[in-house]
Amino acid sequence: MLIGVAAAILIVMMLALIRAFIGPTLYDRILAVNMFGTKTVLLIAVLGFLTARPDFLDIALAYALINFISIIGVLRFFEYNRPNFTDGNHD
C-alpha cells in the first residue's frame, strides 16, 4: 500500500518536472518547483513509514518549512527586478 502511494508521488514529481522544463513562463516553473517540494515532503513521510523510522517526519517538517521560505524568496526576487521576458503572453 505504501509502496503504491510512494510510486504515485514519484509519478507526480515527474509530471511536475516536465512542467518545469516546458513551462513557457517563469511562474510556471516556480509553480512546478513548489509542487515538487510539497510532494517531496509527502514522499519523505511515506518513506519514513515504509522503513519504520519515525524520525523521518522531522525531516519532512523541516523540508516543508524550507520549501515555503524558498518559494517566497524566489517570488520576492522576481517580483521587483524582473528579467525582460521574450515569450508571447507579456505586453
Partner: peptide, 23 residues
C-alpha cells in the same frame, strides 16, 4: 504546515504573476 503554507505560497505566486503583468 502543509495546509497553512500551500494557500499562502499560491497567493504569493498569483500576486507576483499578476504584478509581472502575466495576463
Amino acid at each position: 504546515f502543509a495546509l497553512l503554507t500551500g494557500p499562502a505560497a499560491s497567493h504569493a505566486l498569483a500576486k507576483a504573476a499578476m504584478h509581472g503583468n502575466l495576463k
